[in-house]
Amino acid sequence: MLGVLLILSSAIFFPGITAKVKARLGGRKMPHLFQPLFDVVRQFKKRTIYSPVTSIIFKMAPIIYFASVLVAIMLIPLGEQKGLISFDGDFVFFAYILALGRFMMIIGAMDTGSGFEGMGANREAFYALLVEPAFFILMGSMALFTGFPSFSDLYSNMHINTNLSYITGIAAIYVLMYTAMVENSRLPVDDPKTHLELTMIHEVMILDNSGFDLSLMYIASWLKFAVFGALISNFLIYTSWSIYIQIIVFYLIQFVFAVVVGMLESFRARNKMDKNPQWILMLSAISIVIFLTTLIITQKIILN
């Protein structure tokens, strides 16, 4: 329960911090910390516009997408605190429920009958398919390392201090961070600030959403960031610490993550669209290296 509350609360700050960092580095006046929140509140007060081409799918999509992210949050543990629901193989459920949300998003975008949205939907489907193995290989390595196939057991049995495990830890954080960027369609695969429909992914999929639906989409993307932030922070939180320290460290890591995302988005250029597949596959390659390293740590590969 605690994990869910922490993720929800940190998600409120996340977009504000990122926006502030980006404005600061771009030399602009910084927006209010809660500006993204104000925008969403305004969206809630607006009417919804539907295209006559759309059907019930378009109305279902944002809701199922949002619900899928909420359910995913319930599975995330914090230190020794289990997620709201925890079972063996919950990370498989985690990945698949997010995939369900994505499925609905994609067909929701296709429902508008717009060429732009088709393009975005197609890219979303394609990149998601490429990034998915990375997450599974990472989880597989952890299951191999700890012998436990559930989120909370994975994390609470992770901390054995060998030099190699630090290296894999860093690599894992790298992979998780960029997985979050791909999942949320941010730099370097997609630039949410671009102003041309042809080059967008996520933003172009929600061109025709408005009002309640649009605000759900925004909140879902913050939540997704916070979820991946929580996954990363679980790597760094020691279960031996007292619960208050754990909470503080959790917020700290979420803060650092938000700042890093802001910095990345300020300094990095977007990949060329047709180079994206290769770049995304690199994440899987790194995960395979992590898996092999784990085989060494667990002494299944014996090095002389």
């Binding site: 698949y96 994609i106 490429l130 193995p133």
Partner: peptide
């Protein structure tokens, strides 16, 4: 498991395509 994940991802790719082209849009 990489195979299973890839199959799953490709299936999503395929069925988003076929469902939306047959049933959605104009």
């Amino acid at each position: 498991f990489i195979g299973l994940v890839l199959i799953g991802g490709l299936a999503v790719f395929c069925f988003t395509k076929v469902f939306s082209i047959i049933f959605l849009g104009t």
